[in-house]
């Protein structure tokens, strides 16, 4: 089992220095863009742009591959399944009973896979270059309630810890002769009870201690909060925001106001 690692990598790049609010807005806009355009070539251009940003954020190859492994499986599924379920267009390349494979459907499947890849990769830019603390600070500044932001930060912070706990629990039960992948499906899901219960108990115990720790540091003592490091938009942030808005606005206007096909 691979323990989940924090996706954030500490570095000093343009993307790392960018205001987290700008990054959040940019990622949302670029995701919307990936949904607006459907043309394969345009989607590939967008993907290239996103990958360029990823490279500018000094994402290492191994980390990118690790992150994209999950997306890649979904992409393969889309490429295979799309032509089977979409019989539209000509020329028809093959016909087998009710299943009709057409050339446009194949290209559409590829375009959809690229779109999914764009959607996932663009969020990796945010995750790779924004520390969890900055991410939450950005969300709170954008209007998220602070308690929700804190809960999110804690949840993200505890993912790796939790991974280690699950691994240790699995080991402890295997040492008692438990074979997780043995037996029929029903029996197998029953096996997981031995891992699930200690995991939940350990999570509840952690949550309990955490809430005590928060209270003992006077969390919630004052309704209004002050911040040690406040976020400030600099001119580079404004410029980056302007660039992203433009990149988003041109295709959006072309599609919805000028009825261009994208």
């Amino acid at each position: 089992m691979t323990v989940f690692v924090d996706l954030y990598t500490d570095a000093d790049t343009f993307l790392h220095r960018l205001d987290p609010r700008v990054k959040i807005v940019a990622v949302v806009l670029l995701s919307l863009l990936a949904l607006i355009i459907g043309n394969l070539v345009h989607l590939l251009v967008l993907l290239a742009f996103v990958l360029l940003l990823l490279a500018l954020g000094r994402a290492t190859l191994s980390k990118t591959v690790f992150a994209l492994k999950f997306v890649f499986r979904i992409m393969v599924m889309i490429v295979v399944l799309w032509p089977i379920f979409d019989p539209s267009g000509t020329p028809v390349l093959a016909e087998l009973g009710p299943v009709k494979i057409t050339e446009p459907a194949i290209w559409k499947g590829v375009a959809m896979a690229v779109r999914v890849c764009c959607l996932a990769t663009v969020w990796y830019i945010l995750m790779f270059t924004t520390s969890q603390r900055d991410l939450v600070r950005g969300l709170v500044k954008l209007g998220l309630r602070f308690d929700f932001g804190l809960a999110l930060a804690i949840a993200l912070r505890f993912i790796p810890t939790f991974g280690v706990t699950v691994e240790s629990i699995t080991d402890a039960q295997r040492a008692r002769g438990l074979e997780l992948d043995k037996g029929a499906p029903l029996r197998r899901s029953k096996n997981y009870v031995a891992v699930l219960v200690p995991t939940i108990v350990s999570a509840l115990r952690t949550a309990d201690m955490l809430s005590l720790a928060l209270q003992s540091r006077a969390y919630g003592a004052r309704p209004d909060r002050t911040y040690l490091r406040d976020l400030k938009m600099r001119w580079t942030d404004a410029l980056a925001l302007a660039v992203v808005v433009t990149i988003f606005a041109i295709p959006a206007i072309a599609k919805y106001l000028l009825d261009a096909s994208l």
């Binding site: 240790s168 080991d171 002769g177 699930l196 200690p198």
Partner: peptide
């Protein structure tokens, strides 16, 4: 040998008992 087979010969009580009680 698998872990289950070895468990008959080598028993291992983990440091944190809560990691195995359910």
């Amino acid at each position: 040998m698998t872990v289950a087979e070895l468990a008959k010969t080598v028993g291992y009580a983990f440091q944190n008992p809560d990691h195995q009680l359910f």
